[in-house]
Design a protein around this nucleic acid. Structure first.
Lengths: 336, 336
DNA sequence: TTGTAAGCGTTATCAC
DNA sequence: GTGATAACGCTTACAA
């Protein structure tokens, strides 16, 4: 492996001078700059970032802990985060987490050589948080979900989101509502289910307990929930899915069963992933009016935290009010 | 930032001993292990990986250069690669590249502190390759696309894939074929277009020059291609898209224009991304019989290269024979 | 303008 | 078993 010493030797200068050229310092004769650059090119030298980072105590890397990008929501946010990071001179180390606290993973992230940590899929009682708090000097930020005792989060008003989509179904005339969500230790699922129940309650719509499904967000468990919902004599006429990703899986299930959407069954969700707008999907959902995604906002905030070290910024909490986006997956229930 | 020295001081041992405990070395008294571990916990110590990597000359990180995960193909491969990496103890640094050679990016990747490099979206004449070859000791691997002078690639037989989907259209009775692809400096697009032309030729089907569209794979340019295709008096009855991602965008365009698929227009593609099997898409496409994706195979190969340093493995070239997957986006042309 | 040398936080080779 | 100590490849005062 060629080092700056080799370059120095070839260029006939000291290693320190090579370093100066590399870092574009002023006060350095143009002719030596050229000598060094020629040597760099000739030896095909690339600085060892490990060594640099060690002395600079800065790596320009950030760690992202996200749910599997199988869920388009996480794919979109990951894409945005990596892009913003690149634009600002950071690289991102991607970690996928499971549904439950994963201490192995967290330890890895905690000692990863990164300047900050951004997380989307943590639980309200996640064990990483106390550690993170005690880790002075390594800023972190959360988006989508939040921790029960955490600050620095960017979320939508999940209760409101649940109310909006539920209200839409009820306004359409649906009385047989089902709900499919995820683990309630996630603040998103917790809030959305609360919104669903609250709105149903407010409108005096009784919801059967066994029509409220809590999955682990895997395809299998969502399909299982669908099977249970449509195995009895009575079916729901409308499904409120906690996320667009869940809705997409339900949709696949229902279409394969021969149901017509929305004639037979209405389906609506929350997240407004890009694909929901596709002409062959047209999912009614709940989204934000933001031009930036939550992930992008969080990433920009994280970079501010890293670079400004502005202690005032250290406890930003952002909750965005969502709104309903009506498309073609919801309609009036069939008259009996 | 707490270092192993701090731990040593608190535990009343030397820093070297802390290091030994950390690395689980034998020949160390159980009682001191406990002392050290207690100190580690108390100080909330996490080893500095930069320092460790510097001396070990190993980072357990790999760099992935991929197209934007906006294209589900890249999302799926990225997901697989990150998962395999994690399983094998590696983390992945994700870089998105543009359609053209991006020297800034490449320089970044080249000096990134990684043990190896995996790339999916390079061009046949990409400038990174000569450098990569000269970079002894940093293995690399390519999947999906390959470099004109590169080895270590995993691809499908793109010409064959182009032939298969084109043949399918012709067998259905289509005579007015259009093709929408991407930059021909990408081996995938190059081969797939070649296959398209070859098969049309073999079957004596004349294809209009202006019905062969080369986009830059952005949504805008694909939509533009669609507009051009469907603005004249004569329309194609079948579209061969070079990738499922392109087909999805065409599909959106066509459905929004009020076309029925496949009654008015058939559409088929290559890649067999997961979403193509969704009940609301049902895209006819070309895929492999592999249980693993190309990206996964490539990643496993890369880890072998890194860990075994087996020089024999150093020039693996894999070309998988693809097969047709008929779904509901293709059918017979309307009889005039 | 350039060179010398002291770290950065580890691992690993010696002695003891 | 454990403690010194020399790297690892870089940045950055401090000298010259």
């Amino acid at each position: 492996m060629v080092s700056s010493h080799d370059v120095a030797r070839l260029a006939g200068v000291s290693q320190a001078t090579v370093s100066r050229v590399l870092n574009g310092s002023k006060n350095i004769r143009q002719s030596t700059v050229e000598k060094v650059e020629r040597a760099i090119k000739e030896l095909n030298y690339h600085p060892n970032l490990n060594a640099r980072n060690l002395v600079k105590k800065k790596t320009n890397m950030i760690a992202l802990i996200t749910g599997h990008t199988h869920d388009p929501f996480y794919e979109e946010s990951t894409r945005g985060i990596v892009s913003i990071a690149a634009k600002k001179g950071y690289n991102v180390l991607v970690f996928f987490n499971k549904i439950d606290n994963d201490n192995m993973l967290y330890n890895q992230v905690l000692s990863a050589p990164v300047d900050g940590i951004i997380m989307s899929s943590i639980l309200m009682n996640d064990s990483i948080f106390p550690v993170l708090e005690s880790l002075e000097g390594k800023p972190y930020v959360t988006f989508n979900r939040k921790h029960s005792c955490g600050t620095n989060y960017f979320e939508i008003d999940n209760v409101k989101a649940g109310e909006l989509i539920t209200n839409h179904m009820i306004e359409l005339g649906h009385k047989n509502l089902a709900y499919i969500g995820g683990p309630l230790q996630a603040s998103t699922f917790h809030g959305r289910l609360e919104g669903f129940k609250k709105e149903a309650n407010r409108q005096k719509i009784a919801v059967r307990d066994d029509w409220i499904k809590t999955t682990d967000t895997t395809i299998e468990s969502i399909v299982q929930a669908c099977k249970e919902l449509f195995s009895g004599i009575e079916f729901p006429t409308a499904i409120v899915a906690a996320t667009d990703a869940i809705a997409l899986i339900c949709l696949d299930f229902l279409l394969n069963k021969g149901f017509k959407i929305p004639e037979d069954i209405s389906i609506g969700a929350i997240d407004n992933i890009e694909f929901s707008a596709h002409a062959s999907i047209q999912l009614t959902t709940v989204g934000t009016h933001l031009s930036q995604s939550l992930g992008n906002l969080a990433m920009e905030h994280l970079i501010n935290l890293i670079e400004n070290k502005n202690k005032q910024l250290n406890s930003v909490t952002t909750t965005i009010t969502p709104h309903l986006i009506v498309r073609r997956s919801t309609g009036n229930p069939r008259i009996k």
